Amino acid sequence: MIYSNPLRGPSDIAGWVAEGPVQYGTYDDGGPALGGDGTSALLLSGTLDAEEHGDHAHWTLWCPEETPDHVRIRWEFLPIEEPGLAMVFFSARGHDGKDLFSASLAPRTGYYPQYHSGDIDALHISYFRHKYATERAFRTCNLRKSAGFELVAQGADPLPPADDADGFYRMEVIKDGRRVAFSINGLPLFDWLDASQEPLAGGYFGIRQMAPLRAAYRNLSITPL
């Protein structure tokens, strides 16, 4: 085990780095009588009104532990209230090998262009793209490589709308050198090989949401392949 966090509530992310207007809570599924398993989870949402603040209402939350390459990243996800978008970053670091939290990098506030076209490099998967009507009409999971916002792989999104969600969904990313694979509940969605001269490795893992999405997370683990 490289990193493990049950994500049962706000206390479990006391050392995480928040960028933008994120709000923490605890989700309780009500137990078996209500179709749950009685396990609490970390509830994440935004603090700003998305209509009033636009793209500045979104946020990113970083795990503070640097992750090596050749890993399997797993977590569980449950959408609670739409619309919105859920995303994860991995292999994230500053340009020229700088640490993601180096004081020499520009400040980040959750505004998306700071992450895809700023002074950090990262891979990011958007897997619950229910923010806009066009995304909800034809749902996909997108893998992008940044800086540069390059769409490098795409697959179908099997996640239902929040009202139809049936318990937590098991998310898995494999980052193995040039290879990135993504699956939900064991269903492979894409498997990509980076043919560039500069594949990303190491770096940090982060969670991002677009407001006003409310979603719950639990059981994050990062293990070597």
Rank of each mutant, 00 (worst) to 15 (best):
Y3C: 06
N5P: 06
G9L: 02
G9F: 03
S11C: 05
I13L: 05
I13A: 09
G15A: 15
G15M: 10
A18N: 05
E19Y: 02
P21C: 01
Q23P: 00
G25H: 00
T26C: 05
Y27G: 03
G31Q: 01
A33H: 06
A33N: 09
A33P: 01
G35T: 02
D37P: 06
G38D: 04
L48W: 04
A50P: 10
E51W: 10
E52F: 10
H56R: 15
H56V: 09
H56P: 00
H58W: 10
C63T: 13
C63Y: 00
P64W: 07
E66K: 11
H70K: 06
H70L: 04
R72T: 13
I73Q: 02
F77D: 02
P79E: 09
P79A: 03
I80G: 01
E81K: 14
G84V: 04
M87D: 14
V88S: 09
F89I: 05
F90W: 03
R93S: 15
D99C: 08
F101G: 08
F101M: 04
S102R: 08
A103M: 11
A103R: 13
A103D: 15
S104C: 09
S104V: 13
R108F: 07
P113E: 08
H116K: 15
D119T: 03
D119A: 00
D121F: 09
D121T: 14
L123C: 12
L123R: 14
H124F: 15
Y127W: 11
Y127N: 02
R129W: 00
H130G: 13
R136I: 10
R139H: 04
S146G: 10
G148P: 08
V152C: 11
A153Q: 05
Q154A: 12
G155V: 06
P160G: 05
P160T: 08
D164W: 09
D166T: 14
F168W: 10
Y169I: 06
Y169V: 04
Y169G: 04
E172M: 13
I174R: 10
I174L: 14
D176K: 12
G177T: 04
R179G: 04
V180I: 15
F182T: 12
F182P: 11
I184M: 05
G186D: 03
P188Q: 02
D191K: 01
L193S: 11
S196V: 03
G202Y: 02
G202C: 03
G203K: 00
G206C: 05
I207V: 15
R208L: 07
A211F: 10
P212A: 12
P212E: 04
R214H: 10
A215G: 01
A215Q: 02
R218D: 09
T223S: 14
P224N: 03
P224Y: 03
